[in-house]
């Protein structure tokens, strides 16, 4: 029965949490690396970083990198093959985004488990692109000689490093919005762990706030 499908299929739930752990490790260890030679006029407090110092930060970063890489590839393959991207994340027109965004800022946007509104589609597909860019720029600054063509594609080592840092900033921005919304709708957290059924469309209005 259609309404009995889980809000999030099991592969998405598993890959989400592995990816979440890997991204957190990448960000916190990345801050330890950034602090060794900050390119902006601030550093991250040591208690916020992972690895203790530069070598520890790099060891964490180059370890979590493989987890993120494997998890990301599995997710991209699953999303493309299962229809998850087409059904849930394919961006809709700019008019729907504006309408949903307007409703969201007035706290009137309905939220149905298992269905993605225009703002969610934009944010989730956007953060997937941003994470892919952060992985690719990361490869470009890890291997500026062996993958020199890739580093060149981003305009050389210093620019690729700047883009890598900017992508981190976008991911952190996404996480703040994402966590704030989970705090507002705690049931979405449950649905990302347990197989809660997707809510049928007819109940949509009752969940509007």
């Amino acid at each position: 029965m259609h309404s009995q499908r889980p809000a999030h299929p099991l592969p998405v739930r598993i890959l989400h949490w592995i990816g979440a752990g890997a991204i957190i490790c990448m960000i916190l260890s990345g801050w330890a690396i950034y602090d060794a030679s900050p390119s902006l006029p601030f550093t991250f407090p040591r208690w916020m970083t992972l690895g203790g110092w530069l070598a520890g930060g790099i060891a964490w970063h180059l370890s979590a990198m493989w987890v993120l890489f494997a998890d990301g590839l599995a997710y991209l393959a699953y999303g493309a093959v299962s229809g998850h991207f087409r059904r849930d994340l394919r961006p809709v027109g700019p008019r729907s985004v504006l309408a949903d965004l307007g409703a969201a800022v007035r706290f009137r946007l309905g939220h149905r488990l298992g269905h993605f509104n225009a703002v969610q589609r934009l944010l989730y597909s956007g953060v997937i692109v941003v994470i892919c860019l952060s992985v690719v720029t990361g490869l470009a600054i890890w291997k500026p000689v062996q993958l020199g063509w890739l580093t060149g594609l981003f305009g050389g080592y210093p620019i690729a490093r700047g883009i890598h840092l900017a992508m981190m900033g976008l991911i952190v921005g996404f996480l703040l919005v994402h966590l704030a919304l989970v705090a507002l709708f705690p049931r979405t957290l449950v649905a990302m762990v347990a197989p809660l059924p997707a809510e049928p469309a007819t109940q949509a209005q009752e969940h509007g706030r």
Binding site: W47, T49, G51, G52
Partner: peptide, 20 residues
């Protein structure tokens, strides 16, 4: 560093996550 109290960084040190 060690006088700054417990933090994620010092937790990493105490639990041995900084290669030392």
């Amino acid at each position: 560093f060690l006088t700054r109290g417990l933090s994620l960084g010092s937790l990493a040190l105490l639990t041995g996550c900084d290669l030392s």
